[in-house]
Amino acid sequence: MEHPWEKKFPVNAKDYKLYEDIGEGVSATVYRALCVPLNEIVAIKVLDLEKCNNDLDGIRQEVQTMNLISHPNLLKSLCSFTNGHNLWVVMPYMAGGSCMHIMKSAYPEGFDEPVIATLLYEVLKALAYLHENGHIHRDVKAGNILVDLNGAVRLADFGVSACMFDTGDRRRSRNTFVGTPCWMAPEVMQQLHGYDFKADVWSFGITALELAHGHAPFSKYPPIKVLLMTLQNAPPGLDYERDRRFSKSFKELVGTCLVKDPKKRPTSEKLMKHHFFKQARAVNYLARAILDGLSPLGDRFRTLKAKEAALLGQNKALYEDKEQQSQVRDFTLVIKKYSVMH
């Protein structure tokens, strides 16, 4: 039952022409590119394997997961191959870019509720599929929600996704520290009992707030502070003055995801039936509502990069990613000890 019409993408760098960069990570850059023999625009993630010291196995699993998923709301890889010491992962090109980039360029205060409902519903379908198949995404956030020009929504970046079925054992929980602090569930931070699918549901709730405000809660604080606030404060919600524009059902949805006890959070499948999603519309609505009038992705990305570079110049210490990461690591050790003692 292979689809005979499914195109075979060539596995040779010579068959692709790289254009401008449209995304950037620690060891990878994403380019818009042309697949010459098929005359099709694609996105290619170029990952420098020389910078990934010992984690070839993790990379293999990520690429295999991306290859073996088949869901309209997940970004799959079309093929992958090495070119010198780089790994090229060819993916469908999502011309709208990520929701985070769209917000930064045009909606700094966040989206309207029908847009949020539509986006989140599409993401939830992807999460329910992943969870049903034993995967935890581990990095749900607006930056990983990609939109195409027709409004199609795909959840991307399995950089840190893990498979619960990997080794034939159903490992209920994982014990690795991954994800971005602002979106991270308390049980992931504590690393005491491991965590499961429910960690994605927390991140999903944080993402809902991010789409509503234009940024994640606590995003202006350094990671250390974020960890502390997540663990010690009441869960964030939609209860400020500015949130009065949002409906009761939206507030309830956020409240039900952002419960500190993972057992009390609903599964992604159950969440799909939440009445908030009655507002979700067909995805072509997104094309009209948020993509109209945006400049091309490459230009937007360049502008944002320039802005960030300027900020970086102003306040270098705060934006030193590497340093923050190591601070986070040190700090989780402290938390671990702290939690053991109490």
Binding site: L56, R60, V63, F81
Partner: peptide, 12 residues
């Protein structure tokens, strides 16, 4: 093999 995912699987 040219497909990275397959070659890496065989290597594993």
């Amino acid at each position: 093999l040219p497909n990275f995912d397959i070659a890496a699987d065989a290597a594993a």
